[in-house]
């Protein structure tokens, strides 16, 4: 569990960090909280000559709520996601989900940017980003661009981010007033989800007017299930509607067997998690 030798850089601006990536190419990676990359280096599954630590980049810190628009610096920790009252008032699902990530020690270090940018299908926040319809800001040598979270994930650890780009900010519109829930089954504290469901719903009277559903660790990318959401809209969220949403979700996921269990089990748990999340979200809408 000892990494190969590397150079350590600690730039204090985004441009300087991008410059280091441009200079060293594939030999360099940025590190935020380090909970994914450092173990991979220690296991010698990742070899880097240059590690670019982003913790001094002030531009990438902080939670800003400006009217309807929420902006999160990529270096915001999961602990901050939990403790920010401003965030809780516009997107309480982030607090609910973050409390289910790892353990407090990890959450003090783990960042939202690292969690979404790494492309690990086990991470929880990418699924939330689907439900929140977030936009990711990427800074590269050519300047900055914005990518939809729903179009960001291509395969496990493969994303729309170019090697020389850094995911610097996350933006989304407030979902205040929407019912929300993040239901996650895991084997123990610190584990990735066996299956998890993120649900946001809005009601018009007794009728569901909007529903956004995303699933975690049930495919090699987070799954935004448009069909599952559509199955709920226009209904009261009764048993038949939930069953239809689950059926639609099942068509979108593609779980793989691992130590948590075989595919059949994961599909079953996915249905249970989604059912619970829909009911919980409806009770809050």
């Amino acid at each position: 569990m000892i990494p190969a030798a590397f150079d350590y850089h600690r730039p204090d601006t985004i441009d300087a960090a991008v410059g280091l990536l441009a200079e060293h190419g594939e030999e360099a990676r940025v590190v935020a909280g380090g909970h994914s990359l450092i173990p991979m280096m220690k296991l010698r599954m990742a070899y880097l000559s240059h590690l670019v630590d982003l913790r001094d980049v002030q531009e990438m810190q902080g939670i800003t709520v400006d009217g309807d628009t929420v902006t999160l610096g990529a270096m915001v920790t999961q602990h901050e996601l939990i403790t920010s009252d401003a965030l809780a008032s516009v997107a309480p699902i982030l607090r609910e989900a973050s409390l289910q990530i790892a353990d407090p020690q990890v959450r003090y270090m783990g960042t939202i940017g690292g969690n979404v940018a790494n492309g690990d299908p086990g991470n929880d926040i990418p699924g939330l980003m689907q439900a929140l319809d977030a936009k990711f800001v990427l800074a590269g040598p050519e300047g900055r661009r914005t990518v939809d979270a729903r179009g960001f994930y291509e395969a496990a650890y493969m994303t729309a981010r170019e090697d020389e780009e850094i995911l610097t900010h996350i933006r989304f519109r407030s979902v205040a007033g929407m019912g929300y829930a993040y239901e996650k089954q895991k084997r123990k504290i610190g584990d990735y989800a066996t299956a998890a469901a993120a649900v946001l719903v809005a009601k018009d009277g007794d009728t569901i007017s909007e529903a956004r559903i995303a699933m975690t660790n049930l495919s090699d990318t987070p799954i935004f299930s448009e069909g599952a959401g559509a199955a709920l809209v226009g209904t009261s969220g009764d048993g038949a509607a939930v069953a239809a949403a689950i059926a639609a979700m099942q068509a979108d996921i593609d779980p793989a067997e691992d130590n948590r269990g075989p595919v059949e089990f994961k599909r079953h748990v996915a249905g249970v998690m989604l059912s619970r999340a829909i009911n919980s979200a409806l009770s809050r809408a």
Partner: peptide, 11 residues
């Protein structure tokens, strides 16, 4: 008796 083995029993 992890989750999936208990689930399998129930199944």
């Amino acid at each position: 008796h992890d989750h999936w083995r208990i689930w399998k029993t129930a199944n």
